[in-house]
Amino acid sequence: MKNALPILTIVVAILALWYVAVIPMNAPWERNQAAMRGDQIAFSQIVTNTMNQDRPVLPAPHQVVREMWNSTVVEEFTGRRGWWRSGSLSNRSLIYHGWVTLSATMLGFLIGTGAGILLAIGIVYNRAMDASVMPWAIVSQTIPIIALAPMIIVVLNSIGISGIVPKAIIAAYLSFFPVVVGMVKGLRAPDAMQLDLMKTYSASGANVFSKLRLPTSMPFLFASLKVGIAASLVGTIVGELPVQQGGLGVRLLSGSYYGQTVQIWAALFAAAILAAGLVGIVGMIERRTLRRMGIAA
């Protein structure tokens, strides 16, 4: 906790910078309005006005927080279509859109992780697969896979697959390669001495795998899971852009169509909270698991 004070200082500094930046970013509009009315506007008036514009160039932090509050708790409990009145989540609330994104992210993450682990096992145990597939797995990390997203979505839609699956496929694709590369590294992590020890025990292949290789790979697996879950969230958000069926990506896009800056920022922060939460959960599972395995420091 000795870092708490410095971190707090940095966060406060960022917020302060943000508030200061709000004034010059939004001031031109206020001046224009004043000029159109034909009167002068005092600087203090500008400062207070820029903090509460309807469609600011840069919304102030409290506006974003208020929008998030309004589009979650207020919308669900007092809105006509909210959960309280109608029994189902409102399609105008961030909870609903966040849930759409989260479910696709999780499905994609599970598919991608499972397939990635299986491929990694294949690569570790089959020389030909190692020689032929592994270079492509590494190269594929350097190419902007996400450029495929709109095409995958539209093509899958055209053959009748829509809803959560196309987005999950993109999310799976993005989380797949970090897991493959990390798991291959992890399954190869036992050194010759440890493998020799297993041989002296005349352990079977399955035993070497379950008692040595798999446990040794856990730190590597969790490191790539953290990368993978963040990547699959990005994949889901980008996958939501071409087909407007709800989700945080749709909130971002519709916000940018209609100039609703506050809505964009609220969706952005919702995505950030989601990402931080998911990475945090993986990190927590990592700490628990590694501690029980006796690996964690």
């Binding site: 000795k2 870092n3 004070l5 410095p6 971190i7 707090l8 200082t9 940095i10 966060v11 960022i14 160039v57 953290k226 963040a230 969230l233 990005v234 958000i237 980008v238 945080l248 971002l252 896009l253 916000g255 940018s256 100039g259 800056t261 964009i264 920022w265 969706a267 952005l268 995505a271 950030a272 990402a275 931080a276 990475v279």
Partner: peptide, 29 residues
């Protein structure tokens, strides 16, 4: 050192966020 201790965790946190979401904002600006 003070800045470093504060900025490293915050920077690590921000690096994991879906920064790509800022795209519509920058297109607007």
């Amino acid at each position: 050192a003070f800045l470093r201790r504060g900025l490293l965790p915050v920077g690590n946190f921000l690096a994991a966020l879906p920064i790509i979401g800022t795209a519509p904002i920058f297109v607007m600006w």
